[in-house]
């Protein structure tokens, strides 16, 4: 059997979901037998280099770079999975979604206690990604095939799901699917 090729990325997330992937512990060894990782923080490959079978997306879309990466994944992965609350509904970054963006910037860079009083600037270097008006759930911008809720999703859930995707379908137990 050909090894399935897996790509993963963290967009507007905290890498907690990736930690949870690592949290499958020794089963990682089994996983390596079943899959080959392509672009991923785990391999440190920065660009998808060949067609992938499974893409795991952590985090929502909060800036233009996130959006381009999401599109790259959608274009190159057969199956795309939203991993974690942020990918599914924006998560904690989306707490800003009903606050005007100017207020967010002012609060984060100017009025924050650690900034020099009245002195801080709002970062505007061209190298920085441009923040979007709100944080978007991935499935509102591209087609997402599966969702793994949780903050982070339980390691067992990730394991069961990967196993199911790589081999055949399996019923996910109640205890695994949680939103927090």
């Amino acid at each position: 059997m050909r090894k399935k090729i897996v790509a993963t990325t963290s967009l507007a997330g905290c890498f907690g979901c990736h930690m949870s992937i690592l949290d499958i512990d020794l089963r990682l060894v089994d996983l390596i037998e079943l899959v080959e990782f392509n672009r991923s923080p785990i391999t440190d490959i920065k660009k998808i280099s060949k067609r992938c079978d499974i893409g795991l997306i952590e985090g929502g879309i909060c800036n233009d770079e996130n959006y381009h990466v999401l599109k790259e994944f959608r274009e190159n992965c057969e199956v795309l999975v939203s991993v974690g609350e942020c990918a599914i509904m924006g998560g904690l970054p989306a707490l800003r979604n009903n606050i005007p963006i100017r207020e967010c910037f002012e609060e984060a860079y100017r009025n924050v206690p650690t900034s020099k009083s009245g002195g801080g600037i709002i970062p505007n270097d061209d190298e920085l990604p441009i923040i979007l008006d709100r944080v978007y759930p991935c499935h509102e911008l591209v087609k997402i095939d599966y969702f793994l809720p949780g903050c982070p999703p339980r390691a067992d859930l990730i394991w069961e799901t990967l196993l199911a995707l790589v081999t055949s379908g399996a019923e996910l137990p109640y205890e695994l699917v949680k939103y927090d």
């Binding site: 939203s82 997402i144 996910l172 109640y174």
Partner: peptide, 19 residues
């Protein structure tokens, strides 16, 4: 209730109301 129905992601777009 959502767990009961195994809701993974809602079929409707999020509205993010200001409350």
């Amino acid at each position: 209730a959502a767990y009961r129905y195994r809701i993974m992601a809602p079929r409707f777009p999020y509205r993010f109301p200001s409350r």
